[in-house]
Structure formats: structure tokens, C-alpha cells
Amino acid sequence: MPFSFNTVSALVLRYLFLYTRHPVRFVELIFWPLVDLLVWGFLTVYLQKQGAGAFPTAITFLIGAMILWDVMFRSQQGVAISFLEDVWTRNLLNVFVAPVRTVEYVAATCVVGVLRVAFTLVILAVVAASAYQFNITSMGLALLPFLANLILFGWFLGMISTGLIMRWGQAAESLAWAVPFFIQPLAAVFYPVSVLPAWLQPIAHALPCTPVFEGMRAVLSGGGIPWGSLQSALLLNLVWGSLAATFFALNLRHVRKTGLLVKVATQ
């Protein structure tokens, strides 16, 4: 498939200009993740004190879970919010009539997702280490495939969110924030899958992030790298990636056919 890195870098540059022009946008990347970290961090400290030793230090997985969840969320936001930025600034038509392939456009939003993840992750890791003595690198080498799988799944959720916004217009823009939270209760972020009712567990096991969070708890409890979980996450991501790409492409075809693309872009 033909692909131009120059086109992707031009689109990424446009988003970088946007962020550097408006430092207030960095607040979004710092403020909410820090609020979450403080809440989960103090909860962890409280539980450890209340437990008087009954709770092992492994309970710090709550902080780890919060940080890894944020990785997936920021990655999803990178894709969905970048699309919305073009809608909000009525720039979408300029991009769609430029020699930009759909795959290049999506790739650029994915790169923005990675940049957002990197920025927030560094801040959260530093604050978690200094305020709660939680060292994210204590997950060892497993951290890298954990992050990779969560970033991938975040991209795919972003593509699904974008497809829905294209189809339903700006009225559906809250989906850009809501989609990840639809799956959060089932994703075993803060508790194991076994806690869920039996009928919900197959759904939880169909999410690529579930084995990552289960694996993270295993590692923080002193277990080895859960290769089986990582393999499941990767395979599930392949399936979700295909579904998300198909969903996005079908929606793009639909909005081109019905004229909704122009409506969304000029609302």
C-alpha cells in the first residue's frame, strides 16, 4: 500500500503547532491524569495503613493500573481528539481535498496519540515515584509489551470513536471521551476478571487490555513475565485492529456517500 511519511509528518507538525501555540492544551495532558493519580495514590496509602500490614505492598497495583489505564486513554484521545480538532477548526475539508491518504491521516493521529502518551507517562511516573514510592519500571521488561498493547488498543478505540463521530456528527463528540469508559468496568483495570459475574467474563476476555491489566497485577505480585497474557493481548489487538479499520473505512464510505462528511466538516 502506498504510504508517505512526509504527509504523516506534515499532519503531526500541524498538531504540534497547535499544542505549542496553546500551552493550555498541555493542562489537559497534565491536570486530569494528576488528579487521578492523587486520588488512587492516597487511596492506596489509606488502604495500606488501614490494613495494618494485611494488605501487601502489591496493592500499589492500583497506582500501576491507573497509570496504564491512562496510557490507553491518552492513546485513544490522540486519534479521536485530533480528528475533532480538524472538525472544530473547520479544517477537515482542506485536509480531505489535499493529497492525503486515509491511512496517512489515521497514522498521523496515532503518532499524536503516542506523543500524548509519552508526555503524560513521564509526568505520572515521576510523581508516582516521588509521592508514593511506586516505580513503574518495577514491572521490568514486561512494561514495554504492556504499553505497546495498550497503545495499540487505544488507537483502535480512537478509530471506532472517530467513525462514530463522523457518522453522527458533532452531537456525538462526547463519544471521544466516553468510548474507553464503556469498556472500563469490564477491562479488569482495578480488579481481576474473576470478580465479574460469569456471564460478563467472556466479554472481558475479548478485550485486549484485560490480559495486560491481569498481567500487570501478576508481575507486581512478584510473578514472572506473563507471556501467555501478552500473546493473548496481541492476538486480540490484531482482531480489534481489523475490526476498527473496517468500521472506520465503512463509516468513511458511508459519510462520503450520504454527504455527511461535508456536513460534519462545515457544521
Binding site: 500541524r14 503547532f17 479544517n91
Partner: peptide, 15 residues
């Protein structure tokens, strides 16, 4: 249609 309103003119043209 607009070029992104929050960017400088040269930034939009460079992109």
C-alpha cells in the same frame, strides 16, 4: 472552510 484558526499564518502555510 477555514485554516486552523489558532495557528499563525506561516504555520498553516508550512503544513
Amino acid at each position: 472552510t477555514n485554516l486552523p484558526s489558532n495557528l499563525l499564518v506561516w504555520q498553516n502555510l508550512v503544513v
